[in-house]
Computed example of a mutant assay.
Amino acid sequence: MNTFRYPQGHALIVGIAAYHHIPQLPDVVLSDARDVAAVLGSPQYCGYDPANITQLIDDAATRRAVLAGLRDLADRTGPDDTACIYFSGHGALIKGTEESSLLTVDCVASDLSGTSISATELSDALYQIKARRLIIFLDACHAAGAGALKSATSIDRLDSGFSDKTLSRLVVGAGRALMASSRSSETSLIMGGACNSVFTAALLEGLRGAADRHEEGVIKVFDLFEYVAHQVPRLTDDAQHPIFKASQLEQNFPVALSRGGAKAPSLTSIEDGTDVNDAWQSLASILPVLYPSGPSDQEVWERAGGDVSRLRLHNSGRASWFSALKMLAQGGGGGGVSIYSLTDVVLEDFPNNPELINFQKTRR
Results as ranks from 00 to 15, higher is better:
266 S>C: 06
333 G>Y: 01
257 L>H: 13
295 P>E: 05
339 I>D: 02
348 E>I: 12
330 Q>G: 15
340 Y>N: 14
251 Q>H: 14
257 L>V: 10
332 G>L: 08
266 S>Y: 03
321 W>V: 02
340 Y>C: 11
316 S>W: 03
283 L>F: 00
336 G>K: 02
306 G>M: 03
267 L>Y: 10
323 S>A: 15
291 Y>H: 10
350 F>T: 01
320 S>D: 02
328 L>H: 01
315 N>T: 07
348 E>R: 12
346 V>Y: 02
336 G>Q: 06
262 A>H: 14
319 A>E: 14
339 I>G: 15
293 S>Q: 15
326 K>F: 02
314 H>N: 15
289 V>E: 12
269 S>W: 09
331 G>D: 04
257 L>M: 09
346 V>P: 06
349 D>A: 09
302 E>G: 05
320 S>V: 01
322 F>G: 11
351 P>E: 04
252 N>R: 05
298 Q>I: 09
297 D>N: 11
335 G>R: 04
272 D>T: 01
281 Q>W: 09
272 D>S: 15
346 V>E: 05
250 E>D: 13
276 V>T: 13
339 I>L: 14
294 G>A: 11
292 P>S: 08
351 P>W: 07
279 A>C: 14
280 W>A: 00
345 V>Y: 09
280 W>I: 00
331 G>P: 10
306 G>H: 04
326 K>V: 06
315 N>Q: 10
280 W>L: 02
342 L>C: 12
295 P>S: 03
290 L>Y: 00
294 G>E: 04
269 S>M: 12
284 A>T: 08
323 S>L: 06
334 G>M: 03
333 G>C: 01
252 N>P: 01
280 W>V: 03
249 L>T: 05
335 G>N: 13
292 P>L: 08
268 T>H: 13
342 L>T: 00
307 D>M: 01
283 L>A: 07
335 G>F: 10
304 A>Q: 09
284 A>P: 03
252 N>S: 12
335 G>S: 08
334 G>R: 06
250 E>W: 12
259 R>M: 11
264 A>Q: 14
297 D>Y: 00
351 P>A: 04
324 A>C: 11
261 G>W: 04
342 L>N: 03
336 G>W: 11
335 G>W: 05
312 R>I: 14
286 I>S: 05
341 S>V: 04
283 L>N: 01
258 S>C: 12
336 G>I: 07
292 P>K: 07
278 D>G: 05
341 S>D: 06
330 Q>R: 15
350 F>N: 00
328 L>K: 07
315 N>C: 07
302 E>S: 13
318 R>N: 09
316 S>K: 07
323 S>H: 12
281 Q>F: 04
323 S>G: 12
319 A>S: 13
352 N>A: 14
333 G>P: 05
304 A>W: 00
305 G>L: 06
